[in-house]
Simulated assay, not measured.
Amino acid sequence: MNILIVEDEELTARKLQRLTPEIEPNAIILGILTSIEESVTWLRANPAPDLILLDIELADGQSFEIFKQVPVQSPVIFTTAYDDFAIKAFKVNSIDYLLKPIKAEELRRALHKLNKFKETFSNNSNDLQHSIRKLLSQLAPAPVPVYRERFLIRQGQKMFSLPTKDIAYFYTRNKLSFAKSWEGRDYLVDYTLDEIFAELDPRLFFRLNRQVIASVNSIEKVNLYFNSKLKLQLLPAFDEEVIVGREKASDFKTWLGE
């Protein structure tokens, strides 16, 4: 196994150079590099090693910059004094990351993990890289949804921001959309109800029907209605009947009870 060490701390570099062959008898240390610049130059001029032991904090910056400058075809085990970099590390070919000071058992476990990847997927480098990237993509955290916190309201020649938390419900009338505030004021909103609902937190707002999107706190009363429908009373009061259809009634009750 051909291994490249990128580490600017001399003691850590020497420790990795000593420990790695002890744990992996077939290991050949190709070299010890100390900077982003050296690493980029080396990777452009040499075949991809079987593994890179890569320090995150180098003298000339964070080693993630290497991946922006040159394609890295090798699996990577990161070394770092800080665990804050863990998630970012796993997005760039990382098999594992080791916290300094490096412990022999942790290095042994990381090398064992690499060998397991090879055994599980293939000895073919391209297949291995594809499989590793696929697995690492699953380790990446799911994006946190961002919901609209305010709406821009126009009144004549004036505009102001209306916080979403100040809105009891949205409704449509004559093909126009309005927001009803908790104080009972009506504000014209320049979006359709479909567009509005797509940007609201579904834990806090529910599309009752084609005409109304309501905040959970605006539901004052729920009454059973004929044909398994529900009839609601909103707060502030809405001047028309608010009916939740049979097809939405079950989802509405689940949402209201969460």
Rank of each mutant, 00 (worst) to 15 (best):
Q129A: 01
M159Y: 15
A86I: 05
L162T: 10
I29G: 07
P21C: 14
E24H: 14
D60W: 06
T12Q: 10
Q62G: 00
F117H: 06
G257P: 03
E22K: 15
L208E: 08
R109H: 05
I153S: 13
Q138Y: 07
I66P: 04
S94C: 12
P49F: 12
H130P: 00
D55F: 02
M159L: 12
F67W: 10
P236N: 12
L53D: 04
T172I: 01
S228F: 03
K116L: 11
L204A: 11
L43F: 09
D186K: 09
L111G: 10
S228T: 05
V189Q: 13
K253R: 11
F90Y: 01
S218K: 05
Q138E: 07
P75K: 01
V6R: 05
D50L: 00
E38D: 10
F160A: 15
I23Q: 14
A168G: 10
E9I: 11
I56R: 01
S74F: 02
I3H: 12
E247R: 14
E258C: 04
L98Y: 13
G184T: 12
E105Y: 00
S39H: 05
A198H: 12
K100F: 03
S177N: 09
K229C: 05
E149V: 06
I102V: 02
R133V: 00
V70A: 03
Q155L: 14
D166N: 15
S177R: 05
I52Q: 02
I167G: 11
S250G: 08
Y169W: 09
Y171L: 05
I23R: 13
F151E: 10
I213K: 06
T164L: 06
E10Q: 05
K231M: 12
E240I: 01
F67A: 11
A249Y: 11
R154N: 14
R185P: 04
R203K: 10
F252C: 09
L235A: 11
K221D: 02
L188R: 14
E24W: 15
I213V: 14
E199L: 02
D201N: 15
I3C: 14
I36V: 04
P25V: 14
I243T: 09
L43I: 06
T34V: 11
F90I: 02
Y82W: 11
D84G: 02
I52R: 03
S161A: 13
S39A: 15
L33T: 12
P145L: 11
E9M: 04
E241D: 11
R207C: 00
L234N: 11
F197G: 09
A249N: 08
Q155D: 14
Q157W: 07
A13I: 04
A86T: 04
L4R: 13
A110E: 07
G31A: 10
I5N: 09
N2I: 09
P25H: 15
L54W: 03
F170I: 05
